[in-house]
């Protein structure tokens, strides 16, 4: 049966995780974990609640080089943060699509990114913003680029006795715009059928993050720079580049639909991101 533990230090948390031999689960927002507990798809021997740990990175630290997000920052806090809103509009848009207000008051960015769901809403935006992720184990801490972090559905580089302690986002270069677009089955709260984040820099370099179109979230770039006057060219380039998407058919959508939609959303996200380069502000 499940036990509950609320450690006060990272070391205690890591020891507890290690002691369970893979049977423990870390808990922050619980919005995924509790659903798993209810359906008995996860039956941990120990739930390790990270919210009382004193020596974890603070929820959010803003520096000249970028921002550092600790495990306890909620989606709601992230989306309301003025610096995040200014610099990382795609991430804010993505965070605001996660569940409802009540979910966003609990769900953490680190939790959403780290559970390895191919459809996690914030991951495409984090990929576009070149996030990296810090993983702590009893042996020490390592940092990996986020796009190397995902191995497959629900499989990541973070081992069962390890913790993700931080997500780092570099400061986007001046003139970088980003945007997030998502397709769902209804207008209200829903899981993504397809999601795309796009970033366009001052020189027109385009980077894309793709969700729910493969076993893991994808990051890719376009070869040719963005040219607002040549949308047909953009469409052709996307058509070719998005062959990397390998969606499956499931209850939320067919393979064919996702194939087509990732292209539509990518184009829309790129155009919106490019627009934001000048204004640098989020559209209302």
């Amino acid at each position: 049966m499940t036990r509950y533990y609320r450690p006060s230090s990272t070391a205690d948390a890591l020891s507890a995780l290690a002691a369970e031999g893979g049977g423990a689960r870390a808990l922050v927002g619980g919005t995924d974990l509790l659903v798993g507990l209810r359906h008995h798809t996860i039956e941990p021997t120990l739930v390790v609640d990270l919210k009382a740990i004193a020596d974890l990175p603070e929820p959010i630290a803003v520096g000249d080089g970028g921002i550092r997000v600790g495990p306890t920052l909620t989606m709601g806090e992230l989306a309301a943060h003025p610096v995040v809103r200014r610099r990382y509009p795609a991430l804010v848009e993505a965070a605001l699509t996660v569940g409802s207000v009540a979910i966003r008051n609990r769900a953490s960015l680190v939790g959403n990114a780290c559970n390895g769901s191919p459809a996690a809403d914030t991951v495409p935006a984090l990929l576009v913003h070149d996030a990296s992720i810090a993983i702590a184990s009893r042996a020490g801490e390592r940092t990996v680029p986020l796009h190397d972090f995902f191995l497959g559905p629900r499989r990541t580089l973070c081992g069962p006795d390890e913790l993700v302690t931080r997500i780092d986002l570099p400061r986007p270069p001046d003139g970088f715009g980003s945007a997030f677009r998502r397709l769902t089955r209804r207008r209200g709260v829903d899981l993504a059928t397809v999601s795309v984040a796009a970033g366009v820099d001052r020189d027109g370099r385009v980077v894309l993050g793709l969700g729910a179109v493969g076993p893991r979230p994808l990051r890719t770039e376009l070869d040719a720079p963005f040219d607002a006057a040549d949308v047909p060219g953009l469409v052709r380039a996307l058509d070719e580049r998005l062959e990397i998407a390998t969606p499956i058919s499931d209850i939320r959508g067919s393979r064919e639909y996702r194939h087509a939609m990732v292209r539509v959303l990518a184009r829309r996200a790129i155009l919106a991101a490019a627009d934001r380069r000048t204004s640098g502000e989020m559209a209302a």
């Binding site: 089955r185 209804r186 207008r187 209200g188 709260v189 829903d190 899981l191 209850i251 939320r252």
Partner: peptide, 9 residues
């Protein structure tokens, strides 16, 4: 996964 209308619908 069974979708019913919400406020936004």
């Amino acid at each position: 996964d069974y979708r019913i209308p919400t406020f936004n619908d």
